[in-house]
Design a binder for these strands. Structure first.
Lengths: 208, 208
DNA sequence: TGCCGTGTCAGCCAAAAGGCTGAGAGACCA
DNA sequence: TGGTCTCTCAGCCTTTTGGCTGACACGGCA
C-alpha cells in the first residue's frame, strides 16, 4: 500500500520543517509539498493532489486558513483538511468545522496524536485534540452560555474599550440597559469584571 | 573548532523538532538538548552548559521565558539567550532585553537569519528580526511612550483581567503602587481606562 | 392563551477604578 | 555631588462599575 500523501500549510518555516521531520519517521506517511499561505496551498493541492492537508489558521498576510479550507471545499477537492494551530478559540473551532475541516489539532499535540489524526483523516474519521473536544463538548452541554445577538454586539464594542455611557450612546440605549447586558455577558463568559470579559472575548472568542 | 552547542526551549514539540532539523544542516551548530518549559530549561543548562539558548517566551504552564532568562542571568550563566517567538510585542521585547536576552527572532525568520543569530550570539553580537528592530527604532524616536520593564510586566497581567488588588498581590506591591503604574501606562498608551488599555495591549502590542 | 426569551429601564448600594498631589529609596550617570 | 529615572507608597476625592431587585413590552411557541 502506498503512503498517505500530505501537504503542509504554515507560514512558519520551522513549523513546517518540524512537522515534516516528525511525519517523516512514519513509513506510511509522506509529505509531498509545503505551502506558506492560503494561495500557495490551493496551488499545491492542484499540483500534488495530497490525501491530507495540514493547515495552520493564522497566516501572516493574504488568505487565512479558514478561507483556504472553504476554497478547497468549493472546488470539490477530496483532500481531508486537518487544522493544525496554536490556539483553541471557540470561534476558530466553529468556523473551521463549518468551513469543512476534518480535524483540529493543537501545536503542542503529541506525535502519536498527530500520526493518528493523519491516518484517521483519510478514513473519514474526525480527530481533535483533547482541549478542543472539551470546548465543543462544553458548548453542547451549556447552550445557556451562548450570547444573544445584542449581547454579542455589545461585547464587540466593549473590546474597543468603551465605557458604559459610551456603549449606551453608541447603541441608543440607557446606561441601565447596558449594565443589564453586561451582567448577562459576564455570567455567560464566566467572568466578574469588564477587564476579564475583554480579555476573554479577544482571546477566546477570537474577537480581534 | 568545535560546534556551537545549543539548547532549544519551546513547549511545542514541532517547533523544537523543526528548529533542530534546520540547525542540523549547519556543521558548526549542534543542538545538545531540548526543554519544554522554563524549569526544564534551567535543568538542561546545568547539565549541558550550552553556548546558546533559544527560548520561546510563551510557555503553556509554569515558568515563562522571561522568568527563565532572568533565572539564568542570576546564576551567572555564560549562555547567550536568543528569544525565538511568534510575536513582536513591544512589551515582550523590552522585558526580554531587560531580562538579558542577546537577540530576538521571530518564528517566521529565514533560516539564514537564524543561523546568523546563533553564530553572532556566541560572539556577543545582538541580532534581531527586522520587524523587531523596526519597533525598537520606533521607540527610540518616541522615548516617552516606552514602557518600563515593570510597567510592561504589569500590563501583561492586566490583559489577563486582574483587578488592582490581584495585581498587587501577584507583584508583591501595594494597590497604591499598582495605581501609579497604571496611570503611567495609560498615559503612554494614550488611553484613559483600563478597558481601553487591555484592548490596545492585546491588539496593538500583540499580547495574547 | 399563557409561558419564555429577549431587550428595555430604574433605583439603591457597595466596591473598584481613576485623578491628583506629594514623597522616599535606590540606581545610574554626568 | 547633584540630577534623573524607576519603583515604591499614602491620602483624598470623584467617577465608574458591579450586584441586586423589580418591572414592562414584544414576539414566538406550545
Amino acid at each position: 500500500m502506498s503512503a498517505i500523501t500530505v501537504l503542509l500549510v504554515d507560514d512558519h518555516l520551522v513549523v513546517r520543517s518540524g512537522l515534516k521531520a516528525l511525519l517523516g519517521t512514519q513509513p506510511d506517511i509522506a509529505v509531498v509539498a509545503e505551502a506558506a499561505s492560503g494561495e500557495e496551498a490551493l496551488m499545491a493541492v492542484e499540483e500534488h493532489s495530497p490525501a491530507v492537508v495540514m493547515m495552520d489558521l493564522a497566516m501572516g498576510a493574504g488568505m487565512d486558513g479558514i478561507e483556504a479550507i472553504k476554497q478547497l471545499r468549493r472546488r470539490n477537492g477530496k483532500q481531508a483538511v486537518l487544522v493544525f494551530t496554536t490556539y483553541d478559540s471557540d470561534a476558530d473551532i466553529v468556523r473551521a468545522v463549518d468551513a469543512g475541516a476534518m480535524g483540529y489539532l493543537l501545536k503542542d499535540a503529541a506525535p502519536e496524536e498527530i500520526f493518528a489524526a493523519v491516518r484517521g483523516a483519510v478514513q473519514g474519521k474526525s480527530v481533535m485534540s483533547a482541549p478542543v473536544a472539551s470546548r465543543l463538548f462544553q458548548q453542547l452541554r451549556n447552550p445557556d452560555e451562548v450570547l444573544t445577538p445584542r449581547e454579542a454586539e455589545l461585547l464587540g464594542l466593549l473590546t474597543e474599550g468603551l465605557s458604559n455611557r459610551e456603549l449606551g450612546q453608541r447603541l441608543f440605549i440607557s446606561e441601565a440597559t447596558v449594565k443589564t447586558h453586561l451582567a448577562h455577558i459576564y455570567a455567560k463568559l464566566g467572568v466578574e469584571t469588564r477587564a476579564a470579559a475583554i480579555a476573554t472575548a479577544i482571546r477566546r472568542e477570537g474577537m480581534r
